[in-house]
Design a protein around this nucleic acid. Sequence first.
DNA 1: GGAGTATTTCCCACTTTCTCCCACTACATT
DNA 2: AATGTAGTGGGAGAAAGTGGGAAATACTCC
Lengths: 144, 144
Amino acid sequence: MLIGEYTHNLDSKKRLSLPKKFRTELGKKVVITRGLDNCLFMFGEKEWKVTAKKLQELSFAQSDTRGFNRFMLSGAVEVDVDSVGRVLVPDFLKDFASLKSKVVLAGVSDRVEIWNEKSWSTYKGHIEKQADKMAEKLGEIGAL
Amino acid sequence: MLIGEYTHNLDSKKRLSLPKKFRTELGKKVVITRGLDNCLFMFGEKEWKVTAKKLQELSFAQSDTRGFNRFMLSGAVEVDVDSVGRVLVPDFLKDFASLKSKVVLAGVSDRVEIWNEKSWSTYKGHIEKQADKMAEKLGEIGAL
DNA sequence: GGAGTATTTCCCACTTTCTCCCACTACATT
DNA sequence: AATGTAGTGGGAGAAAGTGGGAAATACTCC
């Protein structure tokens, strides 16, 4: 289970070190893709296969799911984790998510999201304000 | 059953000792998450798994459940209880709940809530007043 | 094709933070 | 007063995160 929030540096060589707590679960190879809300998604190899399969099962008759497939799949890259636990973020993904040197890694159950630090704090401010509505949702699914 | 209210110190290393009475029920691993009304929730491992499972089943296709997942999951951390019964509170959770050195731990049946001392006493003042009114209301309609 | 340049890969080293352990204090109990 | 226990604090060592240099590979332009 990938959970928690970490702020790391994306260095001049576009290397990003993964938080220790994520490394075992992600494994030696990870897949990074374009994500939603201007962040990147990062999956462990296994989880990626599950997600990719779900995407494949979407009908390609509809133009929007076709577009979504292209969005997720064409933007996906498999990268190795180096000896000290870092991954290399390709330019086009770095640009897509407007990543600067300060980057936030957020664990969301089966994936890690990679955010520009400022976008993250803005987004987080949003969702924190909506906490009350979220509590109602919690009630609906019976979590509280 | 987690009950009672305790005031403890959050030290300079962000360590918070759990009240003795909570330790056996919480176990050796606990999960701390963002809570409602600007406090934190703390669960024992078992209680957390129940909640987490329900969250995992939500799709990331819809923006509201996506936000909800991010709020609950990226805002959660699994921490070990150390040899003398303390847990480590990560910065982003400490900030979220505006925790200073004086912190209140309140048992609420299946979870412990962690509060900034001042917010807690303000909040408690509120609910105590409301409790009187509510008791009267309940009495009027014959529920108590 | 080869010299020169750029890019990538691998490894090592530094700094800061965290972790583990031990010690002290305060309060309670006998 | 002596003993035990809960809570608190600090120091030494370990480890996570970070940056940079050298070797290896690719790339370009003559």
